[in-house]
Design a protein around this nucleic acid. Structure first.
Lengths: 148, 148
DNA sequence: ATGGTTGATGGGATAACATGGGATAAGTTG
DNA sequence: CAACTTATCCCATGTTATCCCATCAACCAT
């Protein structure tokens, strides 16, 4: 699973290292899937398993359901399959770093089944909000399998 | 699966490159199926698998159900099987590019099981709507198999 | 304190993809 | 049946994404 956060520079070729722990979480895959989030100025990413999970959810809608098409466009239409070189770097598309306002360094944040990529300053603010939300809503963290 | 979006020019012979990633997603097929969408000014396309999925859905209606006939006319009646040359180009029928208001370049958008082809400007607008919808409805993306 | 391993950063080479063209075969029309 | 048109097929080339190699730094074990 994708854990922790790591900050890495982007080199002159637009490459950035995927954290070694994330490579381990990918389980040998040599690509990551990555896209500009529809939910804010950051990137979302994951391996084939997470894409399968998204695909299964989207395929729960009927073939021409407006929601299905919109989600497919916002996620699959925006996603890129980025190859990892032998040392675990990926080329970050310029429009991706623009969307997340990433300039010189990228912050990788593991979220378990997926990860996000942020500009470090933007994430600092977001992290404060997430911690405040978690503190206010900790009772919503249920035991797995419990009925809601 | 069909991922990402790619913009390609249409040459003087009316040919356009199918993105290399879409050729990979077709799994060796040397034709794509493509038709003017009944749902807006864009084209829909896919491989044999997607045609099978559509066929299975349409065959859920009775043989002379008006819905079945209408869907079959709107999709199968409009579809063309377009061959790919050795470098992955297809000839875009003029009525197809007219329907989608495609002038000089075509934008291919992968939606997982299928793809769409748009005029780039038209898709820019559509994409904003899709992202706004996805952001407003992200709670509808459920874990597959969960009860709604 | 030292050596080994792993992760990260520097660089360069290659092949896949995309774009240019032309030839041929099949279909249509007169 | 011949001429014309067009769809299909094939070849060549440039760009860049992808792949590969080398080196360095940090961490861990002895």
């Amino acid at each position: 699973m994708f854990l922790s956060k790591f900050e890495h520079p982007i080199d002159s070729k637009g490459r950035v290292s995927l954290p070694g722990a994330f490579r381990a979480a990918l389980g040998g895959e040599e690509h990551v899937f990555c896209w500009m989030s529809f939910d804010g100025p950051f990137l979302e990413g994951g391996g084939a398993r997470f894409l399968e999970k998204l695909s299964a959810s989207i395929e729960g809608f009927d073939l021409y359901d407006d929601a299905r098409i919109a989600f497919a466009q916002a996620i699959f239409g925006a996603a890129r399959q980025l190859s990892l070189d032998s040392t675990g770097r990926l080329g970050l598309p310029k429009d991706f770093s623009d969307h997340a306002a990433i300039d010189k360094t990228a912050l990788f944040v593991g979220l378990g089944d997926r990860f996000q990529v942020w500009a470090p300053d933007a994430y600092a603010q977001r992290e404060r909000e997430a911690r405040a939300f978690a503190a206010a809503n900790k009772n919503k963290l249920q035991v797995a399998g419990a009925k809601p």
